[in-house]
Each structure stands twice: as structure tokens, then as C-alpha cells.
Design a protein around this nucleic acid. Structure first.
Lengths: 157, 157
DNA sequence: ATAATTCTTGACCGGTTTTCTCGGGTATCA
DNA sequence: TGATACCCGAGAAAACCGGTCAAGAATTAT
């Protein structure tokens, strides 16, 4: 799961769309103005969102985009996965987990990155567009560690 | 909290260092070879790690680097913070939260990114170098949501 | 019909950031 | 004094980001 500004823009736009649309299509130009994102760039993002099945488009005058699902169904992770092609965090991951095994201590960190990816995905999967619109994003320490090792040390930052 | 290859390299190197060193200094050239990272680049990373107080250096023949603390004390988040200068994820965050308030629906996503950063930091703070060396990284779903909204939907990826 | 509106698609580009290299230092030890 | 290994700053190479441009297709209003 990649985290770039592209993904952030897409989420901002989708939240804006959910927040603005009352069942009727919203033109990209409107979203572009409100969110201060260039129209051409938004077009690229929504092309991917449409391919991902997250929005529907309505052409012609009065047209625009609509959410394909109610805002409490689409999760933030869906949006980011739709616009940001995945990244290889482990250097050995996809193609050849072989090189991982041959070199003894090489990929000690492999599990770490994989698990971190899981954590991020888990969090972004727990938040829907509706949650963001209604500011229902969990406050700090919304998550609880199963084994709270050194939980106190966290504050030391 | 930023997540780049630079941070990953630093973590790989620190884990290798912890795994190799038996109290005696480890030369960067050795780490560079094992982890397949260029020596010159490693030198840059360790310069920052040294400034951050995470490692000690020993010059001259037989010299190298040593962990400044036992491996179960240094957390992964410490390493990443030492080498990757922080980033502004929200575009309005640091300098002027003003622009955030004036534009009504502009920064609905602000809280989301902030909270995501917290989640990542929280996880990386819960893992120490020793945890990685001994493969004590939590398996999937090591975290439990306080309010498990749509927990089932996560599997649908 | 036809014109206006809006999405659709794909190629391309300049600037910034990130990653990495190079070359020369400096401390330390045999 | 020479070999080892850290130390440091200037840049080159590559990737990425945010954006532009242009041509086209579908739909609706007139």
C-alpha cells in the first residue's frame, strides 16, 4: 500500500464529492475549484476511480460524477488502491522470494515491512468516506496493541 | 512519519549490525556487502544515525560501528526518524492551520492523515531491533480496533 | 440537426526530490 | 608511516509528481 500525494488528492476529491452531491452528479470543475486541484489532474484520477468501479460518470450538460456506492460503504483503502499502483517494499517480494531465502540474514526485515503494510491497510480499511465527512475519524490511540510492549515509551517522542 | 527506501535501508543496516556484532565494531563495508547497499550511501545514513545517538563509531583499523544501546531498547521508529526528516502531509498543517479553517470543507481529510501518521508511528514504536532480529514481529491482525466497524470487509481485498 | 457541455484518453513535460557516486579528508592503530 | 576505516561535501542519475495539451466521444438543450 503506497502513500503518495496522488492518493491523498483522490481521497480529498471523493470526500468532497460525497459531501457535495445530493444524488445529482457533480462536475469535476467544481471539485477542482473547491479542493484547489488542477482539473486535468483530477480527470486522470477519476479515470482510475471509474475503472476501479468507485464512481459512475454522467455525460453531457448537467453531468459529472456520482459515487458508485453509498458513502458508508466505500473505504479509504479502496480509493488509494484504485489510483496508486502498489509498490514493492521489500525489493525481493513479488518476483523472487528465492533471493530472500538464499541470503541468510538478508531479509530479516521482510516480515516487518509486510506487517507494516498490513497495519496501514487495516486502518484505512476501517474508515469509510462517510466517517471522514462526519468527522468520525478515531482519535489518537484508537488502536490497542495485543502485546503492549513498551507502550509507555511511545510518549517519549 | 515518512516511509522511504532510505528509512528501510537504515533499518536493514541497523538490524544487520545488531545481528552481526558481538560487542566488537562492525565495518560498514561488511554491512554494505551483506545488505547490498552502496558503501557511500551507507556512510551517509550512519552519519545521521550517529548524530541521532543511535550508534557509536570506532575509527582506525578494526574499527566500525556499534549500537549505542542494547537492541531491545532502540525502536524502529527511532531509526526512521533519525534518517528521514519529517514531511508535511497535509499541505496546510505546519505553517498555517488558518487556511484549513477558512475553507469550510477543504480539510475534512486533515484529521484522517494525522491519525494515519499516528497509527504508523504507534506500530513502529512497538517494535524494537531485537524483535526483528528474533523474528518476533507480530503476525497479521496483531492490532485490534476499538470499534471494529466493517472488520469483516477487510478480508474482501 | 447542431451546438454546447462534459467526460475520455493518451501522450508529453519541467521541476523537484530521492537515491546514489565520487573524491578527498581525518582519526587511529600496527 | 602506512593501512584501515570513518567523515564529509559536492554533485550526477534516476524517479516521481503535479500538471499541460490536444483530440475525441457521448449526451443534452435549442
Amino acid at each position: 500500500m503506497r502513500l503518495s500525494t496522488k492518493g491523498r488528492y483522490a481521497v480529498m476529491a471523493m470526500v468532497d464529492l460525497a459531501n457535495t452531491s445530493q444524488g445529482s452528479p457533480v462536475a469535476l470543475a467544481d471539485i477542482a475549484e473547491r479542493q484547489e486541484i488542477s482539473l486535468s489532474y483530477l480527470e486522470q484520477l477519476f479515470a482510475k476511480l471509474r475503472k476501479g468501479g468507485l464512481v459512475k460518470s454522467v455525460r453531457g450538460p448537467g453531468g459529472g460524477y456520482l459515487l458508485a456506492f453509498p458513502s458508508d460503504v466505500t473505504r479509504i483503502s479502496d480509493i488509494i488502491l484504485a489510483v496508486d499502483e502498489p509498490i514493492h517494499t521489500t525489493r525481493c517480494a513479488a518476483g523472487s522470494p528465492a533471493g530472500c531465502r538464499t541470503n541468510r540474514s538478508r531479509c530479516l526485515t521482510h516480515d516487518l515491512w509486510e506487517e507494516l503494510g498490513n497495519q496501514i491497510h487495516l486502518y484505512l480499511s476501517s474508515v469509510t468516506i462517510a466517517d471522514v465527512v462526519h468527522r468520525r475519524v478515531l482519535g489518537t490511540s484508537g488502536l490497542v496493541l495485543r502485546s503492549p510492549a513498551k507502550a509507555s515509551a511511545v510518549a517519549a517522542e
